[in-house]
Amino acid sequence: MMRRLGVSLYPDHSDFEEDKKYLELAAENGFSRIFMSMLEVTEGKEVVFKKFKQVIDFAKKLEFEVILDIAPAIFEALEISYDDLSFFSEVGADGIRLDLGFDGNKEALLSFNPYDLIIELNMSNDVAYLDNILTYEANKPFIYGCHNFYPQDGSALPLDFFIKCSERFKKHGLRTAAFITSQTAELGPWDINDGLPTVEMHRRLPIDVQAKHLFATGLIDDVIIGNAYATEEELVSLSQVNRYQVSLTVDLVADINEVEKNILFDNQHVRRGDITAQMVRSTEVRKKYKQEENPLHDNELVFQRGDIVIGNDTFGKYKNELQIVLEPHSDNRKNKVGQIRKEELILLDYIKPWSKFVFSQK
């Protein structure tokens, strides 16, 4: 399934002109879906329709997919029925996200709505909610899953719970989404905004690392910035994230040579299938560069987790093999060529047997 980037908008709290600028910038950087909150509308049906339609119409010109986040109170406030979703079709949305669920049968029926609206379900509960819906023969191509975000510091999901919830959806082959948070944006649905991540450990991480981590789990297809408006720098950094394999940012040592740079950056790395606990081994490069000399430098060290080392001229057949250190050890037959960005060490857990990975320079 193709992986995507998304942004969030809050038309009841934002300015239309600012929304337009934000969407244009996001589109330029490869973003293609929008989470649009409709949880806090306070005006009448006609005003709400006009306000949301102008934003959605503009978004559709930029080819965004738009999902509206709704709750039962919205149907009451706008005097519309779950049995008639024409309002959401006419406003231009591609789908609706059900912040609260029903009995399973209702969601299954909604997935057969005559407007082909996507029905997006809340993923942030480790219960058999989805299984129940699917037993009612739901229209699976029109079912998505999307986690919650959590504005209060300390209130987002722990990683292990997030994994369990996500696995419930991913095992059925559904499109899944989760939220990351800008470190500067201040706009969200409520008056508390300590950031809007799905996973608590992401709350203060650089935004690109959050996205890398979600993609690395293999459980999330769409990564959405929860708060608005992210900076241009943040949007650009996300546009450069590799969505399909782990890409590690490296701080290089001063004495790295050209051969080592080529080994590091100009190759597709693959972890050996017969793994070791001490390091990740990329062995094909040693064959490609076996004739290249690699003098000793930065080799009289205790290598630490996240260090990247390459076999030097004293390492025999293992010369020019690249390794990522997982456990501290010493071996003067290896040159340290760099270290992985501290915040990205969490990604090492996702380099499995036969995993593909690449490097980029900080």
Rank of each mutant, 00 (worst) to 15 (best):
L134F: 07
Q54N: 12
Y318H: 12
H147R: 05
P158S: 10
H213T: 11
V66G: 07
K362M: 12
R168E: 06
A77Y: 09
V253R: 00
L121P: 04
S86I: 10
L248P: 04
E167A: 05
P353H: 12
M1R: 11
H297P: 01
N193Y: 03
L68H: 04
I308Q: 06
I133S: 01
I192M: 09
Q240P: 00
N139T: 12
S247K: 15
K261T: 07
E137D: 13
I275R: 10
I308A: 08
G338K: 03
E65Y: 05
E43G: 04
M2G: 08
N193C: 13
K170E: 03
E17V: 10
V7P: 00
E292P: 05
N227F: 02
K287S: 14
V223E: 00
V209T: 15
L62D: 06
D349C: 09
R286M: 14
Y229P: 02
V250W: 00
A77C: 08
K336P: 05
Y244A: 06
S247T: 15
P353N: 08
G95F: 00
D222H: 09
L85G: 04
I180L: 07
M201S: 15
L85E: 05
N148P: 06
W190V: 12
S247M: 15
E63R: 15
A228E: 00
L85M: 08
N113C: 10
L78H: 04
T135N: 14
G188Y: 02
N262M: 10
D94R: 02
Q245G: 06
F315M: 14
V55F: 05
S282L: 09
L205F: 08
Q291I: 09
P158F: 08
I310L: 09
G311Q: 03
L301Q: 15
F52M: 12
L174T: 03
Y150T: 08
V48P: 01
L235V: 02
L187P: 07
Q361V: 11
I256K: 00
E65H: 08
I143T: 06
E46P: 02
D83M: 07
